[in-house]
Amino acid sequence: MIHTRDISYSYDNKQFFNFPDIFCKGGEQMLILGQSGIGKSTLLHILGGLLRPKQGEVMIGDVSTNGLTNAALDRFRGKNIGIIFQRNHFLSSLNVVENLMMTQRLSGTNIDRSAAMNILDRLELKHKYDSKTNDLSEGEKQRVTIARALINKPKLILADEPSSALDDKNCEKVISLLDEQAKAINAALVVVTHDARLKNIIPNQIELS
């Protein structure tokens, strides 16, 4: 579950962003829509604990991220938030399953290879477990990214423009996959996008302006 109150941000006290309050329960989805430059990424980074808001509060589960020290916030993020970025980046010296295991390790969860293989299986990637991430197709990369966001069973899954590079068919497929997987672990799914196609898929929406 995620809940924000009165969050705002400013770059160098010049560009001011005031964001609407967001509320999304576990197992539900929310779409945050907005054009470029309106502060979508900034909001996503605040929700994901990558950036601290100048004002306001972000509650994830029953924890306010304001009260966490930087190192504690790193740990909290690792355990409770899964983020899918617009571009797919991996630890390129590791293979697919090792990337997932490293994600477990970095969050402080115990390394569980069978859980990692399980998720790969659910995302039809099991046969690619020992591939180098650079050798994957774009579609496979995106699914590994999704697997990585899910591996620690987070309370919140954030997706930044997950569909921007996809055609209509794959767009729908990926969103429903995300939705399905988020529901399976009862996580709140927040998708930030400018992609109008998603309006028809996720009914719960907020438009930034």
């Binding site: 994901g48 990558l50 930087n70 190192a71 790193d74 740990r75 993020r77 690792g78 355990k79 983020i83 970025f85 571009r87 980046h89 991996f90 630890l91 390129s92 490293m102 994600t103 970095l106 969050s107 402080g108 990585r148």
Partner: peptide, 18 residues
Amino acid sequence: ERKYELALMRVSGGTKGG
């Protein structure tokens, strides 16, 4: 070359000390 990787490690819960 690895700046995204390193940022990603932080996102995944890696600390500065890590």
